[in-house]
Design a protein around this nucleic acid. Structure first.
Lengths: 152, 152
DNA sequence: GCATAATCGTTAGCACAGCTAACGATATTG
DNA sequence: CAATATCGTTAGCTGTGCTAACGATTATGC
């Protein structure tokens, strides 16, 4: 294979892979939306709660940043979680502009209890894979995380 | 490692992988939403158009099924594409209940022209990967496609 | 053959997630 | 101490998903 051909092919590959990633993400989320309903929380709310639980208390801005969402969007997500009694808002005594968001015990409980169930269907399918396939997937996810992080 | 440990670990792995997949899909789509705006079409519309262009003329039901979406949702997606002059609806002469949806030349043009641009940022990052990383990703996508298909 | 049942796509109406613009409250700075 | 910057919220828009209900058409059963 000549160099120019090789270069073109690698370029096509990148495009095809990007396309397939895009499509896979769309279809995966459409499927999971349904399963998420079982735990009573939508995917974005669950994702935000997870960050709050595992990332300790955070300000709303930090949270919006972590979730790559604009502040008004995060305000609403947090309000929904607060209404459900899963997180609390408390004013920072140092800087009263800030709102610290903290998970309640109920929020932590829901997350650990729901962890198995909320992506149950997906977990089931992943579990059914051969171990080398699972390894491929895990390796790809590490790569993907970096790709996504670099997309800022 | 004892068998029970091994079994538990593989179970945990499946759960962790499922979680990470979920999270990666959410964040990837949030990032790509912005890029899609460049081509003037949202991700779901682009995805539907792609199926129409490459899958030949389809009925609305077939399309909804292919995209794993309910008929009313697909009706609206198709209406938007039709308003943009990218697809046409035509009644089936055999069975007048059916609507055949076909891509216009404008629709085909947009897709091939926009292909590079619409996931440009993602393509860029994928292209920047080492070739073995790209291979990992491609292999994982094949596995992922099957996992998603089995999620029905 | 004709009434009944099933199928297809649409409409209506709801919930939710994303965005920008604009605004008060608080901190920082000149 | 006045002007400016930052933080979070509110208001209002667009878009995607759903279910329920409905007309139009086709298939079925008597």
């Amino acid at each position: 294979m000549r160099d120019s051909e090789s270069a073109r092919k690698s370029q096509d590959d990148a495009e095809v892979i990007a396309d397939r990633l895009h499509s896979a993400a769309i279809h995966l989320l459409r499927r999971l939306r349904r399963e998420d309903a079982t735990s009573g929380l939508s995917a974005p709310r669950l994702s935000a709660l997870s960050v709050i639980v595992f990332g300790g208390p955070l300000t709303l801005g930090e949270l919006a940043n972590a979730e790559q969402v604009r502040p008004p969007t995060m305000t609403r997500l947090v309000s929904a979680l607060e209404d459900a009694g899963l997180v609390t808002r408390e004013a920072d005594p140092e800087d009263k502009r800030l709102t610290r968001i903290r998970a309640t015990s109920k929020g932590r409980a829901l997350l650990s209890r729901g962890r198995a169930r909320r992506v149950a269907a997906l977990t089931e399918e992943v579990r059914a894979l051969a171990s080398d396939e699972r390894a491929d997937l895990a390796r790809a996810l590490a790569i993907l995380d970096e790709v996504i992080a670099r997309l800022r």
